[in-house]
Design a protein around this nucleic acid. Structure first.
Lengths: 233, 233
DNA sequence: TATTTTGATTGATAAAAAGCAATTTATGTA
DNA sequence: TACATAAATTGCTTTTTATCAATCAAAATA
């Protein structure tokens, strides 16, 4: 958890340019957000946010990659998202019980900017556009949680794994070919199956020429088939 | 879908008294909310909201009881909540894509008050307390969706059914003894299992003296045991 | 480079839960 | 009340998926 000068931002300017949420703010409001702001560099594997601790900050990833997950029973996790720069998060606890409801940990060396929750709340009360956009963010999370509930409870393993592959391609790596920096265990945690099942079904997809597989390198060969599997699997 | 004079409200006064959300509004703001407001009486079984249709209104249940559910694949539903008077809903689509993301249908003859979404949005921009509370509502839904995700993906049937029984007792009927107005099918839709499994496990609970069971009448005899089952099941 | 250690793979087995079919019970209606 | 329909129950079978154990491959470290 070193803080290195070369990685820190001078102000929120960078984030403003990148985040639709920040571009709504006046310079006065930006000053409020900027107060007490700090940036931290995390090594691969380190916790950025720990579920259950005090939700003191809204956090923006500025470099690297991280996983966002729910810690369930018996050390079993449910991995919800792989997040990259300019993703802002904090979770539903920011406006309820002031606790983080998920954990986030670094998959690569990762920088993150910490904005005090009370500053976010102050600005929200000053700027209705910002408030509306926060509500929209929260609602979009609601929509994707509904989709996830249906995917995880009503699809069989093949469909759930297809969903994960499409998610990785479309939302994380932005390419049909990608080099994974998550393990089979983590693929399992995204699709609610064991690492053995994840392995097995990836192999099946390879044999069916739906994907090209070389341990960490995956190429989606038949995206239509994956979408079709996603519809029931 | 009759509109009966005896069931309609004269103004939002009743709701104001009952809902923490409405009590935040000035009389001017209440007038905005009241504009174009209407109340409808639904017969048992009728749809109040249909998933996928235009999210034109935020809705308050003022009489009766309804189920709120996601429509998944192959006509398989996931029942999220049983709702009663003074519950306000509309879903995450109100502030995103202006679609309802779930269906709601009446379990009893039920009255519901419809408030135009654009009026809600106007008031939200005028009143920061209201905006903050809407965001809080949305966040609380987020928290309960996380809990549901963990319950449905990591617990076995006994634990999930225990969760449903505790929910019905604590949040719906407010008593350890209750007379169900939902079917075994619907219990299955709440706990993600078939109606046969729901029947079987209810019987098991009866034989283990955890509940007293008489088809539609249930009494929770050993709440501690149910809470323990909920922790892993 | 040799050596650990961690992650991936594979096969065999067991557990959990669904599906199916038949029957019984409850509910609503003519 | 008798009948028709819907819901609940039960036993049996099958499917899905986890678990366990062993081996293999890759990556990190001495």
């Amino acid at each position: 958890m070193l803080k290195r000068k070369s990685d820190t931002c001078i102000s929120c300017e960078d984030c403003n340019k990148r985040s639709p949420l920040f571009s709504l703010l006046s310079s006065e409001e930006l000053n409020i957000m900027n107060a007490n702001r700090f940036e931290v560099v995390f090594n691969t594997g380190e916790n950025i946010v720990k579920q259950g601790t005090s939700a003191s900050h809204m956090i923006m990833i500025t470099r690297g990659m991280a996983k966002l997950y729910l810690e369930g029973f018996d050390k079993k996790n449910l991995l919800l998202e792989i997040i990259s720069p300019w993703k802002l998060f904090g979770g539903p606890g920011l406006f309820t019980d002031y606790r983080y409801h998920y954990s986030v940990s670094a998959l690569l060396d990762t920088s993150a900017c910490f904005i005090a929750t009370e500053n976010v709340r102050r600005v929200m009360r000053l700027n209705p556009d910002f408030a509306e956009t926060l509500l929209k963010h929260c609602s979009l999370n609601g929509v994707s949680n509904f989709q996830r509930l249906i995917s995880l409870t009503q699809k069989q393993m093949h469909g759930r794994l297809a969903d994960v592959l499409l998610y990785l391609s479309e939302k994380v790596y932005f390419s049909p070919h990608f080099s994974l920096n998550i393990t089979r265990q983590e693929i399992g945690e995204m699709s609610n199956m064991t690492k053995e099942s994840a392995t097995r079904i990836l192999k099946e997809f390879e044999h069916a020429a739906i994907i090209k597989l070389d341990t960490k390198n995956i190429t989606l060969l038949d995206i239509e088939k994956l979408k079709q599997l996603s519809l029931h699997g």
